[in-house]
Simulated scan of single mutants.
Amino acid sequence: MKGLVVKFKNKICKAGIPQCGVGLVANITWHSGVFWSVSGLRMPEEMHLVWDGGMLEIGDVIEVEVAEFEEASMLVAEEKHACLIENKSEAVDDSKDLEHKLNLYYRLKKVLEDENQVSE
């Protein structure tokens, strides 16, 4: 199969899904920092597969090679893909979602405090 060989620091992973695609994504946001991940969607099962990822710092380098290989590396996560719009409900958030929102709240609060936009 064709896929991506991704090298970051001392880790190497081979990401590939026969007859499907994979991608390397890096997100930079002012509130969450810089995050990268290599993942793909296996169809028709609609399974989201994740091989690697994490936070990035200034000066970090990610090497990407397009390659052909027989077997992909071990996954770090695999879950059923779900459309956020279709599955959005008024139900109480799960604990992971609440933890993420609370973490984001404290980060944003600190930014505003540092800029003297809000008092403690």
Rank of each mutant, 00 (worst) to 15 (best):
M1R: 08
M1E: 08
K2C: 08
K2F: 06
G3I: 02
V5W: 04
V5I: 10
F8C: 12
K9E: 15
N10H: 09
N10V: 07
K11P: 06
I12G: 10
I12C: 08
C13R: 05
A15G: 05
I17V: 13
I17T: 09
P18F: 03
Q19R: 14
Q19C: 08
G21K: 11
G21Q: 03
V22S: 05
V22Q: 03
G23S: 05
L24F: 00
L24V: 10
L24W: 03
A26H: 05
A26I: 14
N27G: 10
N27A: 11
N27H: 09
I28S: 05
I28G: 07
I28Q: 08
W30K: 15
H31C: 09
H31D: 15
G33M: 07
G33Y: 01
V34N: 02
V34F: 06
V34E: 05
W36Q: 12
W36C: 08
S37G: 14
S37L: 04
S37H: 14
S39W: 01
S39R: 00
S39C: 12
G40N: 01
G40L: 06
G40S: 02
L41N: 05
L41C: 05
R42W: 00
P44R: 07
E46V: 12
E46G: 08
M47P: 02
H48F: 05
W51D: 05
W51L: 02
W51S: 00
D52E: 00
G53P: 04
M55K: 15
M55H: 13
L56Q: 09
L56S: 10
E57S: 11
I58E: 15
I58H: 08
G59S: 07
G59H: 01
V61K: 11
V61C: 10
I62M: 03
I62Y: 06
I62N: 08
I62F: 00
E63V: 09
E63L: 08
E63Q: 14
V64R: 09
E65D: 15
E65Y: 10
V66P: 03
A67E: 15
A67Y: 10
A67N: 06
E68Q: 13
E68G: 12
E68V: 12
F69H: 11
E71S: 14
E71C: 01
A72T: 09
A72F: 05
A72D: 12
S73N: 07
M74K: 14
M74N: 12
M74C: 10
L75P: 02
L75C: 02
L75R: 02
V76Y: 01
V76W: 06
A77P: 04
A77H: 11
E79W: 04
E79D: 12
K80R: 12
K80P: 13
H81D: 13
H81M: 14
A82W: 05
I85C: 11
E86N: 13
E86C: 11
N87W: 00
K88G: 14
K88R: 15
S89A: 00
A91S: 09
A91I: 10
A91Y: 07
K96G: 10
D97Y: 11
H100I: 13
L102R: 15
N103Q: 13
Y106N: 14
R107Y: 03
R107L: 02
R107M: 04
L108W: 01
K109G: 01
K110I: 07
V111Y: 01
L112G: 13
E113M: 03
E113H: 02
D114N: 15
E115F: 04
E115H: 13
N116C: 03
Q117A: 02
Q117Y: 01
Q117H: 11
V118D: 03
V118K: 01
